[in-house]
Amino acid sequence: MNWKDNAVINAVKGAGYTLVLLLEALGHVTQFWRRRRAIFTQMHVIGTQSLPITCFFMLLIGMVFALQTGIEFARFGQTNLVGLVIVSAMVRELGPWMTAFVLIARVGSSMAAEIGSMKVAEEIDALEVMSINPSSFVVMPRVVGYALMGPALTVVGTLVGIAGGGIVANLQLGVAWADYLRFAERGAEPLDIYWGLLKSLVFSVSAAAVACSNGMRTSGGAVGVGRASRNTVVIALTLVVFFNYLLTSFYRMVKLFVAGVL
């Protein structure tokens, strides 16, 4: 097999390209004001338009989570503690990555397809020829829009999830709202909230970079656009679970350090 066709080498080249593209785009963040219209458009597409589906997902996830934990806690007569578990799980884990999953499915794939279509239709070449850097004109607004709206949606989604858990706890498990909220309050410390937001930021930036990179490397017409879209979903989801593990490990170390164990 020709070394140029080697899958590992292609993956490394792709990762390198993605990283360089991301750094280039971040370098153009200084043009924020000049590109504000494009950024606001992206914020609307990524954030506002994704809000209903994100809320629906998180509401249902919160409800199911309350039911499942309710079953276990009932065995020990501790159903009141449901709020505590829901909040800690939502803030630290479910909020950031379920929002990331929803966004990758809804926004990441279409972002790659959009840029891929631009590439195939020579629009990216046209920008280059007009001396307009695509990293600034196309990539930066998308990365910035995603990086701002990902964490924002995570906050809203997490609150909706906690509310969903509360509804089930109150109506089906018979936990009083006061009890639910009392324990919910203990579920998350400020550090947990910051960490959840950090996770969301990392997921958002990596998903946006993967989507833009796959779009920019599209070749081969409609088939290529489909491939770019598919690769984006697969790679971005893989990165999210991978970064989630890394960040959770760091989180544990920080927690232990704060507690004086480390």
Partner: peptide, 20 residues
């Protein structure tokens, strides 16, 4: 190259207009 390209106008096959 970016500076040099300002001397050019290029008409692409499909027009290559920015869709948005």
């Amino acid at each position: 190259l970016e500076i040099m390209r300002r001397r050019f106008g290029v008409l692409f096959q499909s027009g290559a207009l920015i869709a948005w």
